[in-house]
Simulated scan of single mutants.
Amino acid sequence: MLLKKILRSPLIPMSLFILLITFLLLSITNSMVGLARLCFGVLVFCMFLWLFLLKLYNHKHPDSQIKPFGLIPPEFREMDEGEQWVTYRACRNVYIYYSFALPIVAGICFLFSGHLLIPICSIGALGIGQYLVYWFTTYRILKRVE
């Protein structure tokens, strides 16, 4: 059960996203090529580790498999109506988050278009914010139910 919680946790895609943004930021700066390669290596290692754990889980639990590259993210819990409602509420909050975050980030990218790091950091902040809003919403709702 712990492996299922880990694989369905939004922390895995969020950490992979953070590693990807970090790699992009470090690869832009010419002085940190070694650190960028290390970050890329950690990203590839974590991706393969996630895929290995996913394959292990799917082999042990063929009745409740998690698709690694499906259109529906693995953190969605849609087994019954209650879990669908939790997903609905979390996605609704993410949509609300984007309704005010996207114009702000667009303005920041427009104002600082001469700087290459600002748009990448802004996109990274959008992605991290999305995962945080989704995770906190599901955590708050599930905590209330227990």
Rank of each mutant, 00 (worst) to 15 (best):
V42G: 00
V44A: 11
F45R: 04
C46W: 01
C46I: 06
C46S: 13
C46P: 02
M47H: 10
F48T: 02
F48N: 00
W50E: 12
W50A: 14
L51Q: 09
F52R: 07
F52P: 00
F52I: 08
L53M: 06
L53C: 09
L53Q: 03
L54M: 05
L54T: 07
Y57K: 00
N58G: 01
H59D: 12
K60P: 00
H61R: 11
H61D: 10
H61E: 08
H61F: 07
P62N: 01
D63P: 08
S64I: 14
Q65E: 06
Q65C: 08
Q65V: 08
I66M: 05
P68E: 03
F69I: 06
F69K: 12
L71D: 12
L71I: 14
I72Q: 10
I72L: 13
P73W: 01
P73K: 07
E75S: 12
E78L: 13
E78G: 13
D80Y: 05
D80C: 06
D80F: 03
D80P: 00
E81Y: 12
E81G: 04
G82K: 13
Q84P: 07
Q84N: 15
W85V: 09
R89W: 09
A90Y: 03
A90H: 00
A90E: 00
C91G: 12
N93K: 09
N93G: 08
V94W: 01
V94E: 01
Y95E: 15
Y95P: 04
I96S: 10
I96L: 14
Y97T: 08
Y98T: 10
F100H: 06
F100T: 03
F100A: 05
F100I: 05
A101C: 05
A101E: 01
L102M: 14
P103A: 09
P103D: 06
I104G: 04
I104R: 04
V105R: 00
G107F: 10
G107P: 01
